[in-house]
Design a protein around this nucleic acid. Structure first.
Lengths: 210, 210, 210, 210
DNA sequence: GATGAATGAGAATTCATTCAT
DNA sequence: GATGAATGAATTCTCATTCAT
């Protein structure tokens, strides 16, 4: 995990990376209920060292999430420039689901207040923008039904990702079947019009958990 | 909530019911992180009374889950006898998703070790049996693509339910759109064959989380 | 320390008293920075037992303070009915200062947010009412200069109490000299009019610390 | 703030001054619970730089206190040479109280072990000496009752200062009323003899807090 | 000489679970 | 049989002080 922070001593930079890597691993495996002490142990530092960089546990989790969301946003951008948008949509969604599967952290955090942080909102906006572009192109190419929007893709990724993660231990890879099945629902063939509207961006940006 | 336990004094029986009802409500609203004390307060009993019947918190949660799963199984059985299996599949899945949405408990527990308990396995088997029957009839009627199995329906319900719950606060009812979209993927029109097999029953019964 | 709480089991009542007594002693000796664990040790209970009765440390401290303030209020009421209000003022103030001296807790808390709690406000109001009555009678008797008000007495008690406490270790009882000296300033003989007004009750009830 | 230390490089000397100034400001505003890191931030240096000069936090606080006490001593010396010792006593005490009010640090430290350090004792002795001289002159002039001593003035300043600080947020300036009231007690008119002796210098120099 | 980083020792608080009445 | 009380083990977070660069 490479995270560049200016004005950081070499050893601190190394520690920071180890902390983030450890946090990533621990939260991915144990979920967000894992304690900061677990992360510290894994990183080989004291808990106070973590709290120096990340004043609260949420800050630490956010850092991990941002890192992952950045990856998502990057992949979405690339996909949006693909020659075959229909295939690109499928590949992108599949790879995003895969990331969910590999990471309890992202999965559990989705929908939490952490996503309301400005940097997260930025990244979500960026991601949505790329998805939007890609989706429109795929729709023009006739690969995706006309009545779905970018937010819908996000929802479906989230849904298959979360549920797929649950299956992963006992049936590794089973999620791929469901990714296919859900993608099938996005194709225009035989589509009946949807009777419910997608959530508005405002709704998506409101507090999501209580 | 009716739960029969032999050799139980009348007041004890009443307490047991009140505890389960309270647990149901509390866990549904607050999620599984709610404390046993909260349940006790709601039920109007002491915590020790709960622990007398349910040696651990997990036992209490399991009891709640079993109750809900019984409801699911009952509804699936009814659906399996419907005159219009195509419509029945859609209605059943929608109503199951709705139950997920209304119940943080079930949602958060799905995929946990609690589902490995024998009684839960029994109920899952029962539920799957009914779904299987219903599904086969719907497939014969041409309403559902031939290559999906009962376990697939369970997965999809779980997926839309979990992700839908996340959205519910800010965008109430948004899940209905996704239920439609996912159901669309089950229809035979324009279906490309699925390239991944469904998980085996054995896989579904193995330990799912750590 | 006798604290009656209805519906409390005998052992719990005993523990509650032990906790309050311990809190009183510990906070009186060590000040409010003493940890709840210290109090628990002294009371011979676990910290969690304390937190069961007093959800926060502030609640515990408040309980101690209320108890002491109740004593103050009682003494002030008695004093207000004295036959010799001039002497009664002196005796009351001296005894209140003595209480301060014996109790770092009360001393350190004076002026803190804890005094803003409703029950504390009630007690302060009650105390002030009695002081007011007593003071007026003393003024009519010519024992106290006409331009002082009840709040002034409170301030002076607080002042001599706090500063006296500081001296107590090395010069026990020295505060009595200063009580005399300050009381001397309240007598009408040779009084020059005060050029500053007393704080309004509103000011006294505002948040006092940041 | 000028503090001369021999054999100190120019930059080190500058740093030392900045640290003391920052400590003064921070402790005055936030009280002694302010962290060393806060002081370091304010001074624009690293924490380690502070700990190089002041091995413990107490050492840092002491340095600040010494500085303030030096100011007090200086003002007392000036006052002791005043033409009108009666007025000078009042003005000096008022200005000392004001300093207490403006400085949580001094107020919170008064009576702590920090005052037992040799340099502090020296300064206290110096201050007391000047007060003594001034007081005697004021007594000769008939402005102050004969039975008070220098230590009494110190106590009263401390008392009004501490209690006044508590009021300052909600009732700014209220302390001036109490300064007047306390000063009134020092005047000879109608004075009854004090029945308690002042603390001896030895007592004042013993450990005061635990 | 100076600095930012690291840390160990607490602090308040919570909760599933056991115990005494 | 039922209950409220008690608690030990955790968890997040803070800070004076020491260390490596």
């Amino acid at each position: 995990m490479v995270v560049e922070t200016p004005h950081l001593r070499a050893d601190a930079q190394r520690n920071l990376e180890r902390i983030l890597e450890a946090a990533c691993e621990v939260f991915a495996h144990e979920g967000l209920d894992a304690s900061v002490a677990d992360v510290a142990d894994r990183a080989g530092v004291g808990t106070a060292t973590i709290f120096r960089r990340f004043p609260t546990k949420d800050d630490l989790v956010s850092a991990v999430l941002e890192h992952e969301l950045e990856t998502f946003a990057g992949r979405a951008r690339q996909a949006s420039e693909s020659d075959d948008p229909g295939v690109a949509v499928e590949e992108l969604m599949t790879s995003m689901i895969e990331s969910f599967i590999e990471d309890r952290c992202f999965c559990e955090a989705s929908g939490s207040d952490l996503f309301l942080r400005p940097r997260m909102q930025e990244l979500v906006t960026e991601l949505t923008g790329s998805l939007d572009l890609l989706l429109r192109r795929a729709q023009e190419a006739g690969a995706i039904r006309d009545d779905v929007v970018a937010a819908d893709l996000g929802f479906l990724v989230n849904a298959v990702g979360q549920a797929g993660l649950r299956l992963e231990r006992s049936a590794p890879g089973a999620w791929r079947r469901y990714a296919e099945l859900v993608l099938a629902g996005l194709r225009p063939e035989g589509a009946r019009p949807l009777t419910h509207k997608p959530p508005t961006p405002e709704q998506l940006h409101e507090a999501k958990t209580g």
